[in-house]
């Protein structure tokens, strides 16, 4: 099976190992991965600011670049949600757009729904706290949001639970926002910071050593707070755990050691 790999701009530029880990996880499961080099960014920063006309050309580029792949897989719930739920305004009616919406998938979703995976062959003997990143959680419905009265499920957590040696921690607020929110993190710097610090506090009381998520952007924000405040927590993207990266081997962990 061939997939087009969609690597969000900030992962490409800031967290290359998350992209590499995604490639490794997919290839290990027999997926043929192709990274179309022309891709840049899905346009979410502009869209979330309301700059619709500045988003449109990026949505159009995205469709042109990815429309011929049978699946488009991305290690970010937020960017996938952008394509699936927010491209409507720019691409409605364009040839290939309906298919694009259907076939663009977040990594865990792809593993569970398309590949039918329920076990990950990896070892990670650490106490891990799952941060349910909002767009994956409440827009892609990767897990049951705590507000809804529905049968509980969580695709990301289920995969994590299958990792050998892992211990998942229990949070007091299992799906509260970390306060990243894209440009929100700088527009509302004070509130964003308080939200992030509260998440860290929750993970600390729960005994997490590592915070993981299906979205690196939340983790970037949390990691910035961890390092500024000299906390002992670490962050790793779920793909890095699935790819069998050791705790100290993650690029973020090395930066922490400095």
């Amino acid at each position: 099976m061939q997939v087009g790999l969609f690597i969000p701009c900030y992962i490409d530029q800031l967290f290359p190992d998350v992209g590499m880990a995604t490639v490794e996880v997919l290839e290990k499961l027999g997926v043929q991965v192709d990274f179309p080099i022309e891709q840049t960014c899905c346009g979410q920063p502009m869209a979330n600011t309301g700059c619709i006309e500045d988003t449109r050309p990026l949505a159009e580029r995205f469709l042109a670049i990815f429309r011929d792949y049978p699946y488009v897989v991305c290690p970010s719930g937020s960017c996938v949600s952008m394509v699936r739920h927010h491209y409507e305004a720019y691409l409605a009616g364009r040839p290939g757009f309906e298919e694009l919406k259907r076939k663009t998938m977040e990594l865990c979703e792809f593993l569970v729904q398309v590949l039918g995976i329920d076990r990950i062959d990896a070892r990670f003997p650490h106490r891990v706290g799952l941060h349910n990143s909002c767009h994956g959680h409440r827009e892609l419905r990767l897990g049951a949001a705590s507000e809804l009265v529905i049968r509980p499920y969580n695709k990301v957590r289920k995969l994590l639970e299958s990792v050998d040696g892992i211990q998942l921690t229990e949070l007091e607020r299992p799906d509260e926002c970390c306060g990243f929110g894209g440009t929100f993190a700088v527009n509302e710097q004070a509130v964003s910071t308080l939200m992030g610090l509260d998440r860290l506090q929750d993970h600390q009381q729960a005994g997490s050593e590592v915070i993981t998520a299906a979205d690196m952007s939340c983790l970037m924000h949390l990691d910035g707070l961890i390092r500024r405040n000299g906390k002992s927590l670490r962050v790793m993207h779920v793909a890095q755990i699935f790819a069998g990266r050791p705790l100290s081997g993650s690029p973020l962990a090395t930066s922490l050691a400095k």
């Binding site: 909002c134 767009h135 990243f180 509302e188």
Partner: peptide
């Protein structure tokens, strides 16, 4: 803009 778009 006083919103992180968390959807809660």
């Amino acid at each position: 803009y006083a919103c992180s778009l968390c959807g809660s």
